[in-house]
Structures are given as C-alpha cells and as structure tokens.
Simulated assay, not measured.
Amino acid sequence: MNGAATRVADATGNWVDTRAPQWSRPYLRLSRLDRPIGSWLLLLPCWWSAALAARMAHSIGQLPLVLALFFVGAFAMRGAGCTWNDITDRDLDAKVERTRSRPIPAGQVSVRQAFAFLVAQALIGLAVLLQFNRFAVLTGIASLAIVVVYPFMKRITWWPQIVLGLAFSWGALMGFAVTLGRLDAAALALYAGSIAWVVGYDTIYAHQDAEDDALIGVKSTARLFGARTKPALTVCYALAAVLIGVALGLAGAGLPAWIGLAAFTAHLVWQIGRLEIGDAALCLRIFKSSRDAGLLLFAGLLADAVMATV
C-alpha cells in the first residue's frame, strides 16, 4: 500500500503519514490522530470546568491528575466518535472530495474492523471514566446518547452543529461532576457557553464542504447562514462570551479568569474579522485557531484556581 496515495485529502505531511507503521495508518486516521485539533476542542471544555471547579473547591491537589485523565479520555473518545462517524457516513464520505480518501470509503479498512477499533477506543475511555466518582461516571455515560445520534443529524436538520455542541461541550459538565460531585448553575452556564462556541467554530469548518454538501443534500449551519455567516457568528460568539462570563460570576472567579475570558473573546472577534467563507483553506486555518482561543481561557482559569489556593 502506497503511503502517499492513501493519505486523507486535508491531512497530509503529518506524523501518521511519515512515521507511523504502514499497517497502523488507517486506524490512526480513523481516530483522527493525524488531525488532533478535534481532540483538543473536545478536551478544552473539560479543562475549563476542571479549573473552575477546583477554584470553587479552593483545592488544586487533584487538579493535575484530573487534567491528565481528561487528556487521555478526550483523545480516546474523540477517536471513538470519529470512527463511529466514519462508519455511519461512509456512503456520504465517498461522494465528497475532502472525505473520499478516509479509510473506510477508500477501502483501507472494513466496517467490521472499524467497529472493533471503535470498541477498543471506547474501552480506553471507560477505563479513564472509572477513575472518577459514581456521579461523574454516570454523567459521562449519559453523553453517549448524543454521540450516537450526532452523525445522523446532518440528514434531518439544518442545525447539526447544535447537536455537535451538546456532545463536544459535555466536558464543561465533567469537571464539576468529578471535583464537586454535582452540577450547579455555574456548570450549566459554562456548558451553554461552550455549545455556542462550538456552533460558531464548526460553522466555519463546515464552509469547507458547503458546495459538496449542497450537491448531496447534507444540511449544516454553513449552508443555512450562507452570506449571513459573519452576523450569525457574531451572535454565537457573543452568546459564548456572555454565558461563560455568567459561569465565572456564579463561580466567584477572580481577575485572572476574567482576563482569560477577555483574551478568548478578542480571539473570537479576530476570527470573525479574518474569515472569508469562500476560501476553504482560510476556513480551516481559522477553525484550527479555535484551540488557541480555548487555551487562552484555560490559562486564565488555571491561574485563578492556583491563586485562589495560595
């Protein structure tokens, strides 16, 4: 099998393509380890909530371990979710230029092999989840219903990004469940703010496929908003900033957290100003920069948690 010929169209030149053993490459691509940005975007709400909950608990003793476990769990479960998405979308992926080279439509792995790999990744996620308290375990398991239905949403609603937001923002609840053993108003506000953020950045991402999606009948907020994307993003990102601010206020956050939120918001404003929806490569770069926005907020929350305990 020729490595260059089997690369995924928008993920060339990475370590999977150049260094991973040949036999492992289709599986690493199924789990998107050649494109880890999605894992980071799944992880960041987990880290936000862990830091904010530690601040509320006035204790950071367990925070390093919680952050590390969330890191492993996010990468494993994002891999499992992407593998499930590729199984359910294999026929659609074959019709889209950017996705037809994915392992299943390209014939690199069978559906049966992909499903076995999905189970293996899910078991890693479960092993991480079982390190936490019972309430956190049940909270984590509850997210699976959203993950299962998400791939089908683009077929029936113009708003699949909201369902993605429900799934990708679940970590905003997990830090509170793990650290405090409960979900209070601050957790729910952080969750809602993260959902608005996800709708925004995934709309940018979806503009890469808008033309192909129109041809095959796939729905998205990118197609729904069209030329009105920038005003729509302004609403989404404003909601994200306000709701996350509500979470900080409810949690009694200090100045470093608010500075982090200001930097996060400034980055979102920059994204809107820079965006050109007809430039697919630019859309991808701006989408990937969402990790930087999330890390700015996390840095502020982490600094606040540390300063609140010294």
Rank of each mutant, 00 (worst) to 15 (best):
L67D: 11
R155A: 02
I37A: 05
F71W: 13
A76M: 06
A293P: 08
F298A: 01
G3I: 05
I272E: 01
A206V: 03
I37D: 05
G300R: 04
W270C: 00
F298P: 02
S49D: 08
T234N: 11
A20Q: 06
P36D: 00
A210Y: 06
V137A: 09
S101V: 02
R228C: 02
T179Q: 04
A257W: 06
S169F: 06
A247M: 07
A251H: 02
A281P: 04
V137W: 15
L41P: 12
A94K: 14
W158T: 11
L268C: 04
V111E: 13
T88S: 02
I195P: 04
G200W: 09
T18L: 15
G81M: 08
G79Q: 13
R25A: 14
I37Q: 04
R98V: 10
R223K: 13
D304T: 07
Y27P: 00
P151K: 07
G200T: 01
G300F: 03
A247G: 09
V72R: 01
I141K: 00
A189F: 13
V147Y: 02
I204K: 06
L130N: 00
L166V: 01
A308I: 06
I259A: 12
T265W: 09
L144A: 14
Y237F: 15
N2H: 03
F168E: 04
V242W: 12
E211S: 14
G38L: 00
W197D: 05
I60T: 15
P256F: 12
V269I: 15
K288Y: 01
L188Q: 02
L284S: 09
R90H: 14
A54Y: 09
L67R: 08
D86R: 09
I87C: 12
V148G: 06
G193T: 04
S169Q: 09
P26H: 10
A50C: 09
I195G: 01
A257R: 01
F287E: 10
S59C: 14
M174S: 08
L123W: 11
S194R: 03
I162P: 01
T234D: 10
V246Q: 02
